[in-house]
């Protein structure tokens, strides 16, 4: 169900995004930071779903809050002549890798458990055959 929603969202989003008017190149830097923050939130959300502690409010607040905060930080960095957006990117991308690792481990463990179970099952079958 959620997977269908994601696919539909992606398709509609792509169409809308292509049809939106261009934004000024100056502001595209802010938008890029917001995108990275939002992606981080999405992967965080996926991880929490797998862990079973998904909370919609936390997800939404993280999604929009992080995006807005990172844009504000970038703006501040421009004003202070410090590349603060680098810090934001490091944090968000680092977290993305962490979350991806968690997701990866989850599925690999799930898959190996299945294999182990099947092996046990096979061995059990052999044992029963051997007894005959």
């Amino acid at each position: 169900m959620i997977a269908i929603a994601i696919v539909i969202g992606c398709a509609l989003g792509a169409i809308i995004g292509i049809n939106l008017p261009n934004i000024s190149y100056t502001y595209s830097g802010y938008l890029a930071i917001a995108i990275v923050a939002a992606l981080d939130s999405v992967f965080g959300g996926l991880t929490s779903v797998l862990k079973g502690n998904f909370n919609l409010k936390i997800f939404l607040s993280g999604f929009f809050g992080n995006a807005i905060l990172s844009m504000l930080l970038t703006w501040l960095g421009v004003k202070l002549n410090v590349d603060i957006y680098l810090a934001a990117i490091v944090v968000f991308v680092g977290r993305m890798f962490t979350n991806l690792a968690i997701i990866r481990r989850y599925y690999i463990e799930k898959w190996s458990k299945k294999e182990v179970k099947e092996e046990i099952k096979n061995e059990n079958e052999k044992e029963t055959m051997g007894k005959d």
Binding site: I6, G9, I35
Partner: peptide
Amino acid sequence: IGLVILILTAVIFL
């Protein structure tokens, strides 16, 4: 979640 993904992809494509 669908809306959120929609917004995200829209912004990414933009």
